[in-house]
Amino acid sequence: MIKVRAERLNFYYGATRALQDISVAVQPNVVTAFIGPSGCGKSTFLRTLNRMNDIVPGTRVEGRVLIDDADIYAPGVDVVALRRRVGMVFQKSNPFPKSIFENVAYGLRINNMAGSRSELAGRVEESLRQAALWGEVKDRLHESALAISGGQQQRLCIARALAVRPEILLMDEPASALDPIATQRIEELIYDLKQAYTIVIVTHNMQQAARVSDYTAFFWLGRLVEYDRTDKIFTNPAEQLTEDYVTGRFG
């Protein structure tokens, strides 16, 4: 069974092709890691999976992306509904200039999932706990989200994404701004979440990719060089390029 399948995907920023013929099949309830050098198209590819690139002017997609065997780029697809199912944590943390509580509640409110006051509060707490942030903010839920640290903001964005319970969670370097303890909590969270979610994570940290993921895709210059089980990618890759990259022998 396949949850997300890209078929010969090309992506253009204006005239520049940022992704070339990407074909990949992501399985449900596993963690898939995207690795590769900076600028190779990891974020771009991740953002094609919830059509986030639609709102970047001058971009164009060729090929297909199937989620549960339905093409998300087909005419008539409800993009709003799609994005509810495919949550995203961005590379650059982007809390709303609202309170901590309202940041997490936002997705529930706009999707009419807020329920009663206590249900909403419960859901917010649960999400903050999952993102390993509850202990640090429980006494200041109604303060501005812009007043907490960068790492806390990133975890807040994770909590915000979890609150609406998407089926697929796309995480673009979720731990890049976090200290080792928070990073470990996030990795544990990812491990717990994969029972119920399909997770795709972009990371520059090889150890992290090896620790959390079941499958790994290695990107290079807009191409997918290799995609396989994580242990295979890290111990016995098929491509020389992959081996050079994961062993740190990359120019």
């Binding site: 994005r83 509810r84 650059k92």
Partner: peptide, 27 residues
């Protein structure tokens, strides 16, 4: 208002109207 805020809202399944009135205008 940074584009990232709009993206954060869209990524949660917000419509354009919701993003405009609940995120961009308050920001």
């Amino acid at each position: 208002v940074p584009r990232g805020l709009r993206e954060g809202s869209y990524a949660l399944g917000a419509s354009r109207m919701q993003t405009s009135l609940r995120v961009v205008v308050p920001a």
